[in-house]
């Protein structure tokens, strides 16, 4: 196994995913296989190769600074699981 349980637990936490117990064991196995598989990249000779972040060699187009959106809060919030007074509710955030 290229990944151990603790590593998988850490990744799941970073990704905010709760896995059921049986799911967790399977994930350790399958993720390890995926990581082993992509490890073959290490053999590629890539000295001096500029990483390619994008398929096309283009630059960013800019938009004019204009207000084009109107208020659609009530319409949009029909998809929200929990709202009150126009605010989205979450369990209390403690700092």
């Amino acid at each position: 196994m290229s990944l151990d349980k603790d590593q998988v637990q850490h990744i799941a936490m970073l990704a905010r995913l709760r896995l059921a117990d049986d799911e967790f064991a399977e994930t350790v196995d399958k993720l390890s296989r995926i990581v082993d598989f992509v490890d073959q990249l290490s053999q590629a000779a890539t000295d001096d190769v500029v990483p390619m972040a994008h398929p096309l060699n283009a630059s960013q187009r800019l938009r004019a600074d204009r207000v084009t959106e109107t208020d659609r809060r009530d319409d949009i919030q029909e998809n929200a699981p929990s709202v009150e007074g126009g605010l989205y509710l979450v369990p209390k955030v403690i700092e």
Partner: peptide, 30 residues
């Protein structure tokens, strides 16, 4: 293209892009 004016009613100036709705994309303000 949502307004940046201060003091509006909650979430009335949060458009689909600001809300991170599925499928939307950012376009940069010049």
């Amino acid at each position: 293209g949502a307004s940046t004016a201060y003091g509006a009613e909650p979430n009335t100036q949060a458009c689909l892009i600001d809300l991170g709705y599925p499928g939307v994309l950012p376009v940069l303000n010049e």
